[in-house]
Design a protein around this nucleic acid. Structure first.
Lengths: 162, 162
DNA sequence: TTACTTGCAAATGATTTGCACGTAT
DNA sequence: ATACGTGCAAATCATTTGCAAGTAA
């Protein structure tokens, strides 16, 4: 870990502490380690994934999955994290410290490719304004097949229709 | 209902029957009425909503909610319907017979505004191609506040952060 | 001390599934 | 006749919540 990353984490941590203070919430070891792990791994986590990783990494912490859910919800509601919904299969969370981006998700293997496009963002804002709608977040996911999954069959056969 | 709508429904129904035949599934009264109701109401339905409406409209049918779920899943998997996920709060389905469009969703009251923008669609395809990704569907939801909900408080207070 | 947090286990709520009976083909 | 479909109730699974004990402020 180099000094730039350390600085980044320091800022993140300080933002988190501010958020907690503002809302009269407490800075606990569990909350700290959840933030730290999200930062260090820099991946998309399900609550379950993160829970198991924390349990493995910090056995003495004896963390409960409810705390993971509670903290992820806190982070998301305060815009320090974002989530991608996989419907019944749950959600995956990531920290919102990286620059904003969207996702391509392979329906077959779950691969997530990140991308970002300013033109689209600008168009979204323009459209929302036309409808007198205020965007607080957006969700743009391109679902489909990654390069390696293109050969699989759909669940239901479909024919060409007029 | 005018003759154009009737024609539209006839085509829809015929597509549905084809789909069923192709997959050796049966054309039942339940499946028919689910399709018909989705078409006639032309709204976004949760499985629960649709179940209650069907129960009220066709009391003698004695439809079960499991059948509604099964049929909506069938329609979605075969691309005759699409859904919007509301996370833990469930999904809303609509028929895919109308021209493609995306959604703005009010986080506060659940209002859904539909919109469509060709420029964005083209950009999406362009980006996917650059990543050798094949889009089968996309999800673009602008989440935020509609005109009438803009005065409410967030769950957690947030400060400006550098 | 006071109020917020935690882990645990139980509750919740949307969705799915096993099964015996019903029905389209 | 042969499968597939259905309603029902029970099961599932992600997520939330009540509670008693723990801990930050």
């Amino acid at each position: 870990m180099n000094s730039i990353e350390n600085l980044e984490y320091t800022v993140l941590l300080s933002n988190f502490k501010e958020l907690l203070k503002t809302n009269r919430l407490k800075f606990t070891r569990q909350r700290e380690l959840i933030l730290k792990t999200l930062y260090e791994q820099n991946e998309h986590f399900t609550p379950e994934d993160l829970y198991l990783l924390l349990k493995g990494t910090y056995p003495h912490l004896n963390i409960g999955i409810a705390t993971v859910y509670r903290t992820l919800n806190l982070l998301e509601e305060s815009s320090m994290a974002t989530s991608i919904s996989f419907g019944v299969a749950g959600k995956k969370f990531e920290l919102a410290n990286k620059p904003h981006h969207d996702h391509m998700i392979c329906k077959c293997c779950g691969l997530i490719i990140e991308f970002q496009n300013d033109q689209i963002e600008h168009l979204q804002i323009k459209i929302a304004t036309q409808h007198r709608f205020t965007i607080t977040s957006h969700l743009m996911q391109l679902r489909g097949l990654c390069e390696t999954c293109k050969q699989k069959e759909p669940s239901f056969k479909q024919e060409e229709r007029a």
